[in-house]
Structure formats: C-alpha cells, structure tokens
Design a protein around this nucleic acid. Structure first.
Length: 317
DNA sequence: AAGATTTGACCGCT
DNA sequence: AGCGGTCAAATCTT
C-alpha cells in the first residue's frame, strides 16, 4: 500500500484535515436537518440530494484518509487503528466461513488437550457498540460464553449467530449490563451477518414498522439512495456483497452514521442541532468503514425514542 | 431428542 | 502474568 501521509511531518496536518472534514460534515448534517424540516412533498428533494452529496463527499474523503492511515501503520500502531477502521481484505487467518471443528475434527483433540481456545481473534472485524434497554435485536443469537470482567460488576455475555455453522455467519455480539444503569446494556456487535436469517431476523426491514415508529410522526424523511438507505430495500440488495467487494451504491459507514444523527435530530430533540449528546440514553459508536447493510434489522425495532446515536469521530483522530 | 445455556478450561494478546 | 474471547462438556429447556 502506498503511504499518503509521511508520518512524522504531516501527522498533525492529517489530523487537522480530518478534523475539518468531520466538522464540515457535521455542518452538512445540520444543514440537511434544516432542509428536511419544512419539507414540501416535492420542493426540497434536490436540496436534500445536494446535501447528501456533500455529506457523501466528506465521508468518502474521510474514508480515503483514514484508510491511508491504516496503510501507514505497519507497526503496532496498526492494531489501534485497525480497531477503528476496516482493513481492506480480511485477515486471511479469519476467513474461515465455517468453524473447522464442526466437521472433521479428525485430529486428536480428545486425548490430550482439546483445541478449545485455539482461534484467531477477530481484531480486524468491524465492531459497533450500542447502549440500549433491550438485548433483543431481531437476530437469532446463541450464547456461547460468559465472563466476569475486571472492574465490572456484571458479567459479559458472548453470543454468536445461530447460523454460524449452517451458513458460516460470523456475526457475534457481546452484552454487558451497565454498572451505572443496570437497566441498560452495552451491546457490542462484531462482524456482519452474512446469513439469511429467515426465522428470527428478517433482513428486510419494512418502512412502516421501523423508521416511522422510530422517527416519530414528522420524520418522514426516510432515507433514500445514497443519502440514507437505512431500512430500505437497497440495503437488502447489498447483502449480495457479503465480503468486501465494492458495491457501487455502497454506503460508507460515516454516511450511515450521519444519517443516524439525523434520526437523533429529528427524533425527540427539540430544534437544537445537537449532534451527539453526552448524556444520551443511547450512545452509538461504530468502528469500521464498511456499510452496515447486513445488520439493519438490529435497528429496526428496539431503538426507542429516548435513544440517541453517537458516531464517535474522535476515534479517527 | 434437539437445541440452548452454563461454566470451567484453554489460549491469544498485551 | 493475567485479562478476555472462545471452546466444548455438562446440564437444562423445549
């Protein structure tokens, strides 16, 4: 990979660029919010598209910048970045689609120590975290572990997709009660669902049962096209790109999260243009630069109106 | 009986 | 060394 920013000289410059871009995008997000309020059935569409393009432009730039940051870091710094950014091309060590144990297991695993624990950590997997009142997210999960966590009063539970072995779905999540507020859970999703979860998790999120209710009455500005395709069918289409092939109509994550900001804005927040509230009931943060097309189902029904999203841009800096 | 959960063991990573 | 993620046998639930 090529190095776009010489590390020593341009590090601060790079940060500045990113900061400015982030800021600019936030402004565009706010503008978008303003535009969509007095929405005329026909009038504001082009303006919205314009703003969406601005947003996308920022997002793309950020994406390029940040991915080059990955390229720069060929050292320990890499891990830190990798937590936050998608690594192009999956780590070869974790591409197993189906757990090798499930079949074969021909090796002598009984006699001596079994092979439990011999796995590759999925460090480069995209992760995102929410704080919510429910752990239910319309996906079928199978609990596979629980751990006491240091300095944490509540244990952390580990779940994998029930389709892991059937379909090689690699999605996992971790759930932990919040110490300060035991009614709430921190839920960390790791990896995307690549399964067709027909039983519990309809990937298709219908408009009426999700965003409408989520957004409230006057949040009719349902995402479309690049702008924000959350919950719309185009997301489902993107399941055709389960890995990292580039989907021309792909959303970048940041675009995606920007749209969640919109939801926050158009939700229960009074006209104030607060993008990320520190005291939000629900914080949403994301790592990874891929679109979240596999998992919109999780947002569909459980983000109650008091919840907020937060895309933590500071992770990029 | 099959699927889900529990729980101690195992092991990668820092 | 020890934390945390995963495994898998035992147990529970449906």
């Amino acid at each position: 990979m090529s190095i776009l920013f010489p590390r020593s000289s341009s590090a601060t410059k790079r940060k500045r660029v990113i900061r400015e871009l982030v800021q600019g995008r936030d402004y565009a997000t706010q503008l978008k919010f303003l535009l969509q309020k007095p929405i005329g059935p026909d009038g504001s569409v082009s303006a919205k598209e314009l703003v969406a393009n601005v947003l996308r432009s920022f997002t793309e730039t950020l994406s390029v910048l940040t991915s080059s940051e990955v390229a720069i870091s060929g050292d320990h710094h890499r891990d830190e970045v990798a937590q936050n950014l998608v690594i192009s091309g999956e780590d070869a060590s974790q591409v197993e689609s189906i757990d090798p144990r499930s079949e074969g297991s021909t090796e002598s695993k009984k006699g001596s120590k079994d092979r439990r624990g011999s796995y590759k950590r999925r460090k480069t997997e995209q992760t995102w975290t929410i704080v919510a009142q429910t752990t239910d997210d319309n996906h079928a999960w199978r609990k596979y572990g629980q751990k006491e966590i240091l300095n944490s009063q509540f244990p952390r539970s580990y779940f994998r997709c029930t389709r892991k072995f059937e379909q090689g779905c690699r999605a996992t999540k971790q759930v932990q009660r919040i110490q300060e507020n035991p009614d709430m859970y921190t839920i960390t999703y790791i990896g995307f669902h690549t399964c067709k979860d027909t039983l519990k998790a309809p990937q298709m999120v219908t408009h009426s049962e999700t965003w409408d209710s989520f957004l409230g009455p006057d949040a009719n500005d349902v995402p479309n096209e690049h702008d924000s395709t959350i919950g719309s069918q185009s997301l489902i289409v993107k399941q055709e790109y389960p890995n990292d092939e580039t989907d021309p109509s792909d959303l970048t994550d940041a675009n995606f999260w920007s749209d969640f900001k919109d939801f926050e804005l158009s939700n229960d927040k009074p006209a104030g243009l607060k993008i990320a509230s520190e005291n939000a009931d629900t914080v949403y943060s994301c790592t990874g630069s891929r679109s979240l097309d596999m998992d919109f189902g999780i947002f569909s029904s459980h983000f109650c109106s008091t919840e907020d999203f937060h895309f933590d841009e500071s992770q990029l800096l």
